[in-house]
Write a protein that binds this DNA or RNA. Structure first.
Lengths: 182, 182
DNA sequence: GTATAAACGGAGTGATGACTTCGAATATAT
DNA sequence: ATATATTCGAAGTCATCACTCCGTTTATAC
């Protein structure tokens, strides 16, 4: 692959991440314009708009998964779990599309993105069970509902455009529900 | 207003509520077809698609507000609060779809819908303070974060397509965080 | 430096969907 | 029953967007 082609591909990905992050309904032309390339170039690298969206989504999911895996090495599983949770939520609040990305991952996404979503959930599940073994999270909370909480908190924070203080107060309420009964 | 016109208007509203509740991206033609009227009739009653969406959204918000006001009369404020919360979350799927359609249509909610939303929030706030006075909800939880939880739970349940059991388990976690510390 | 294969951009194309127009149909007043 | 004012629906218009074609440019191998 020629050097300029690789450059352009990277620029398109970055632009798409930015544009679709701001408004999911944006057009392919918008992406091309921001990337500073012609529209044909976008379609040469990504055969369809869906393919482009999937590539961006996959990248985001993998980034989140990597952070989870990184935190999994921590020697304080409780802190690791809550820190990850908080980080995902606050990132989604600033970057409007992350919540939608999470949804799309579970729902009708292509194989690549679905795989990335699976990896992310697995990493999160690992954090959860470790935190439970350490006694930081109640043992009767299971993955499906805890994951639902994560998505819900993310989407809620984004949709309601919460300021950081309110967001933290909301998270504090959620965490109190997740901690073992005193 | 002629009788057939009023009839059609009602049929269009019902059809729109149904169609947009199912898929936010639906076209005006879809609505007309389900309502059994021509497309021009839809536009005669609602000048733009946005206007139609707003009418439907407003109706839904008012219905929720009425439910809250109804429960406000209860002599068990704690139960009333949690029952309302649960009900909103389980019914949220279609309401959110409509709200999403509205934002997708470009226009943020217009004055009418915004007013309905305000009324709904006020009614919810009343339920909350009553439940707190009755000792069923911790006193240090304030409206913004509790409302954020409501939105988050709704959006999360919808986005993750939770089955009822998981949804209830998620709500149980949230409610544990909202109850006074044991 | 030149050849050539690869990549580029911008002007199309076709489909879709919001909205309009206008002649046909129908409810109500007389 | 008839007049007429109002409503109806099907066939348009126009803008937008995903995607393609093709002549031009540019990186790299020799």
């Amino acid at each position: 692959m020629r050097a300029d082609a690789r450059d352009n591909r990277a620029r398109i990905m970055t632009a798409a991440d930015d544009v679709f992050g701001r408004s999911p309904g944006a057009s392919t032309d918008d992406v091309a314009r921001l990337a500073g390339v012609g529209i044909a170039t976008v379609f040469r690298h990504f055969a369809t708009k869906t393919e482009l969206l999937e590539a961006v989504l996959t990248l985001r999911l993998e980034r989140i998964r990597d952070r989870a895996l990184e935190l999994a090495g921590s020697d304080d599983p409780g802190t690791a779990f809550f820190e990850f949770f908080t980080q995902v939520v606050s990132e989604s609040a600033s970057k409007l599309a992350i919540a939608e990305a999470l949804t799309a991952a579970g729902a009708a996404a292509g194989e690549e993105a679905r795989e990335a979503g699976r990896g992310m959930r697995e990493a999160f599940s690992g954090l959860l069970t470790a935190a439970q073994k350490a006694g930081a999270v109640r043992a009767d909370a299971e993955m499906p509902e805890v994951y639902a909480l994560l998505i819900g908190a993310s989407r809620g924070a984004t949709a309601a455009k919460l300021d950081p203080e309110t967001r933290d107060r909301m998270l504090a309420l959620i965490y109190d529900g997740l901690k073992p009964r005193g």
